[in-house]
Design a protein around this nucleic acid. Sequence first.
RNA 1: GCCAAUGUAGCUCAGUUGGUCAGAGCAGCUGAUUUGUAAUCAGCCGGCCGGGGGUUCGAAUCCCUCCAUUGGCUCCA
Length: 646
Amino acid sequence: MIKITFPDNTVKQYKKGISALEIAGSISEGLARNVLSAKVNGEVIDATLPINKDATLQLFTWNDDEGKAAFWHSSAHLMAETIEYFYPGTKFGIGPNIENGFYYDIDLGDRTISENDFKKIEDKMLEFARAKQKYVRKEVSNADAIKYFTDKGDEYKLELIGELEDGDITFYESGNFVDLCRGPHLPDTSPIKAVKLLNIAGAYWRGDENRKQLTRIYGISFPKKKELDEFLVKLEEAKKRDHRRIGKELELFTFSQKVGQGLPLWLPKGAELRERLENFLKKVQKEAGYVQVITPHIGRVELFKISGHYDKYGADSFQPISTPIEGEEFFLKPMNCPHHCEIYKSKPHSYKELPIRMAEFGTVYRYEQSGELHGLTRVRSFTQDDAHIFCTPDQVKDEFKGVMAIVMKIFNALDFHDFVIQISLRGPDDHEKYIGSDENWEKAEQAILEVAEESGLDTIIEYGEAAFYGPKMDFMVKDALGRKWQLGTIQVDYNLPERFEMEYTGSDNEKHRPVMIHRAPFGSMERFVAVLIEHTLGKFPLWLTPDQVIILPISEKYQKYAEKVFNFLNNSELRAQIDDRSEKTGRKIRDAELKRIPYMLIVGEKEEKRNTVSVRKQGEGDKGTFSLPDFVDLINHEIAKELENN
RNA sequence: GCCAAUGUAGCUCAGUUGGUCAGAGCAGCUGAUUUGUAAUCAGCCGGCCGGGGGUUCGAAUCCCUCCAUUGGCUCCA
């Protein structure tokens, strides 16, 4: 007999060799039906594996991430089996579970597969699933594994086997499909009741663009049809949040083929919104001791050779433009820092002046691969809310903290809390990718880690993600479709001061090298606005939104009064307009709702007589009658609350 | 850049196997209506069916190519 300890610390005795599934069955039949995988002594394994010694046991169902992982991983195998059924001779790469579903990378040879084929694959998958195919785990020797996939002619699996230790290789067999796989898997296919293949994409083998591109098929599966339907509804709803769609509806920005791909055109409403964001930040920065500078959009190639950008990105940039007579070459600036470095160098500095915090809304141009362009989140021309702080080494930590405070202040004012703070450091063995001395890198990385620690905020550390000149802290967010984007960024840099030979005179009357901090709280105005649109559904905070109030006269008879209200609001510095169309009130309300105008003021006979307005709030409905001063107070209070700190 | 798909009025979309297939709704304009908390009615305007080649008696529909967009991959200072 063995002792099994459950998560609630109860201990029961079982026969040696019993499986987690059988234990579940001993508790209840329903539980046995729902068990997808199990954790035995800390290791997630198949629920069907025998347990031969005393163990702690946790059973996983669909409600657990581990259960879902096994479910989707098994679904990937099921899909592979089905694809092999329809397309014999297909070679298989990897087929993991992912955050939402699974995928499999396959090599179909000369054949192609398209979304039109999804239905038949889904149907056949469900047919196989209903057959209750068991997932059978087999330990195989290296030699047998190699023989199997050599016979099958699957070089991808052979490559994977080549990286595994002998004795560490397991196959999983389900139906007619055998796969090299670590597991764990479901006991059998029967829980898979609903399947949807989502999309098809090219994916380089092992993520290496120099290797063959395989066909990746994404899918998702569920234990209940209803859950699939709900998932698909959610997907549709997510698409409605898409900033490209809302941006078009609200006339915030557009693109033109003639202007060029990835070059956003800000429409008046969007420009106004962006300007307001910029002014907000300028004010915050002024309070924090920043100075504004302005620099040109181009700079001599030489400048970027000094900065290192030329070596690193020169070939992947818009190519240099040159003067007609002298043939002197200039780059469109992909970053503002070299220009700012030259401003720093325009005169000698004393330690007493530091830190110098030099800010600019600088528009930069980067040649992004065409396949990467995406709405406003990935463009070729964008404006950074850039600033460079030049400081002494012992000011770095405080300055870094100050920048973090600005980022948090902005995010608070926008009621923006859904982000992850990522610290990007060098990888353990990729140091040749970066410029600068190890000593400086270590100092910089240490400074960021310490500040992060002291801030008390949750952070994650990613190795190998640092910028080529220094480590950084990024504020990451997800868009409507779950894609991750970098917004704000703070980067410590010991390298540019070196390269530009920047100096200051210390209290010891000796020359010293300053440290630079690159920082952009929004990151790019384009990307930030895109994410803001998706997070707010276009319902921007009152202080920010282009139109705060719309006045809806019941009929033309009240036009005069509407104008009086308008003037009052205008004099109170609210952004208002009048809908003077000859439409019914219901229609005017509907249109204002769709335009996400926060406040609608309905004015008719009653209001005119009493010098009031009838207030309706977007998305909420009737708020009752207000005098004009009261309404202005209401708005101003709301704005003050938004800006003070939520 | 790579793989796959898509590209019809300002927007959202119909257009079966190539032959009155150039359509609808919304938006816009005109007029009527004078309206009380999410769509008043009518008329009108609007498209070289992404561009360019081809096949055909005939192409929005088939083929080639370029461009753009979408979903991924790679990249992301």
